[in-house]
Amino acid sequence: MTQGVRDSFSAGLGIFPLGIALGLLIVQAGLPWWLAPALSLAAFAGSLELLLVGMMATVTPLAAVALTVLVVNFRHVFYAFSFPLHLVKHPLGKAYAVYAMIDEAYAVNASLPEHERSAARLLAMQIACEIYWVGGGMAGVALGAALPAPVKGLEFALCALFTVLTLDAFRSRAELPSLLLAGVSVTVALVLTPGAAMFTALLLFVGLLLLRHTVTARRTAQEAADA
């Protein structure tokens, strides 16, 4: 368990300040303070929450909110393939581990050797992460209330975070076509539907990847037939 808490420190360095940014944004958007802890407990997904603050401030239709959540967090579907849920035996523990399967928890766990993993270590790390996240949000709310004038431009933290995560995710040549397809998708989306660019771009991107899959599958079959 102590090990789990120690595991959480590196993730906490990113989570806590981002929580502060979230709290500040909520206060500056004119939304009520309780939204910081409520949103953090309901979603427990940093980048999504920062996006939602802007959407809620402008009272975006609920259907658009639902679609955004679905598309932005769809990546979590793929975590299930390597997340060691089988270690956790207790049903409540299992439920919590799934609910708290955030990017950071997945990444920290993935970096551990298999024999060092345990249910207690995993859950302790996840609980610690949630405490940093909710605590950071509360600290941000307090800070936002104490500031004399709104600080402009804090939402840039989101852009910076995604830029950094893109750099970290981009490690191999096999991912270059994906990056290019994403570039095409987002360019087309910004030109055609600047108001809903993210949503259009993600849909286009998934469509292009399915196309790429078909092409790759056909080529593999062709090579098998030629050989």
Binding site: S47, V72, F74, R75, F78, C159, F162, T163, L165, T166, A169, F170, E175, P177, S178, L179, L181, A182, G183, S185, V186, A189, L190, A197, M198, A201, L202, F205, V206, L209, R212
Partner: peptide, 13 residues
């Protein structure tokens, strides 16, 4: 394929 592209799209938007 998905993660890097999704993150790039999020960064740009």
């Amino acid at each position: 394929w998905m993660p890097v592209g999704i993150l790039a799209i999020l960064a740009v938007t």
